[in-house]
């Protein structure tokens, strides 16, 4: 879940330091992700810098053993060795472990094949409240090209703010405001009432049909919901607004192994189709291995072996590059 303000990024750092018990200095990237872009757009990369400011090692994926070897060559062996396995590392830094609020009880809606995250801006709250709710909007690249298609909306409560849905109150509602001749169907919707628990933290998913018409103006979505804080100090009605732009967000990260959720009813969008869980090559690993220039795409001259042989078939939008989502879509299609 992406922080949308520097304050939220710093809150994540604070949570991480507390949970890991580390004294290592942390940096937060700018909201424009300048650091990430300057260092090659990798999520788990590592770099060794010389005192003169030269990048001695630039590794696409962090490798603690190799890093130790690098440092021993540069500055000598450490007197006391600490291995990663010596540390009691939590699975997630910011998670729901502090609360007994239910999770996994609301079914997820499958994203359209080949979906990519769109640029979403969380607008400041009128009451200057924290931005408890986050929106991830995804659509196939063909939506922008052809002017229409299915968009997946996923609303999640950010665990950094320690809140949960109040299922005793009316369910979350969204309402879309579009400009020009853009239409969104349905333009408003309500999440299915959750009866399995009085409170939960599961995302609320919707699928909407978008017809952009001639306009490419951003879409504005208003969301009303009831939430409580995890310490049971307050329960409030909250309204937030988001703006969706019709461009792919290269910094939105990727979603892997999405849970199907549990029993219950989904949102009032289109029916749930179930998630693709067939065994297939890990697109993330493939991307890490093949994408040598680190731009998050597989260029034609980077592709090797079967990927190279089937490049044209996999390149669904004929862009001359393969995105992570095109890899997933192709492997899912092959698995059917």
């Amino acid at each position: 879940m992406q922080p949308v303000t520097i304050a939220e990024r710093l809150a994540h750092i604070s949570a991480a330091k507390q949970k890991l018990g580390t004294r290592i200095p942390w940096l937060a990237d700018t909201m424009e992700n300048d650091l990430k872009h300057a260092f090659g757009d990798r999520n788990n990369s590592e770099f060794v810098i010389s005192p003169e400011g030269k990048v001695l090692i630039a590794r696409a994926w962090s490798d603690p053993e190799a890093l130790r070897s690098d440092l021993e060559k540069l500055v000598g062996k450490a007197e006391t060795l600490t291995k990663v396995s010596d540390l009691d590392r939590p699975e997630a830094i910011v998670d729901s472990a502090h609360t007994k609020v239910a999770t996994g009880i609301v079914p997820r809606l499958e994203r359209p094949a080949g979906s990519e995250a769109l640029v979403v801006k969380a607008l400041p709250s009128a009451k200057d409240l924290p931005l408890y709710l986050k929106l991830r909007a995804e659509a196939p690249k063909s939506l922008g090209r052809d002017g229409g298609g299915t968009m997946h909306l996923s609303f999640s409560l950010d665990p950094i703010h320690r809140t949960h849905w109040n299922n005793l109150a009316p369910a979350m509602r969204y309402s879309v405001s579009s400009s020009g001749d853009t239409t969104v169907t349905p333009s408003s919707g309500e999440a299915a009432k959750v009866t399995a628990a009085d409170a939960d933290r599961d995302p609320r998913d919707f699928l909407v049909e978008v017809d952009l018409g001639e306009s490419r103006d951003p879409l504005r979505i208003s969301v009303s919901f009831f939430a409580c804080d995890d310490d049971d100090k307050w329960c409030n009605a909250i309204t937030q607004e988001f703006e969706i732009s019709w461009e792919v967000d290269r910094d939105a990260g990727r979603i892997q192994n999405r849970s199907k959720g549990g029993k219950g009813k989904g949102g009032s969008g289109r029916g749930m189709k179930g998630n693709a869980t067939r065994r297939m090559p890990d697109p993330d690993q493939l991307m890490q291995r093949i994408d040598r220039n680190g731009d998050g795409l597989i260029q034609k001259d980077e592709a090797r072996g079967p990927i190279s042989e089937r490049f044209a078939e996999m390149d669904a939008d004929d862009s001359g590059t393969l995105s992570h989502e095109e890899l997933i879509a192709w492997f899912e299609k092959r698995g059917r």
Binding site: M1, I24, I255
Partner: peptide, 14 residues
């Protein structure tokens, strides 16, 4: 040693 917090995209990253 500096840990750089950049993307924080999702807990579902591998």
């Amino acid at each position: 040693v500096i840990s750089t917090l950049t993307l924080l995209a999702t807990s579902l990253l591998p």
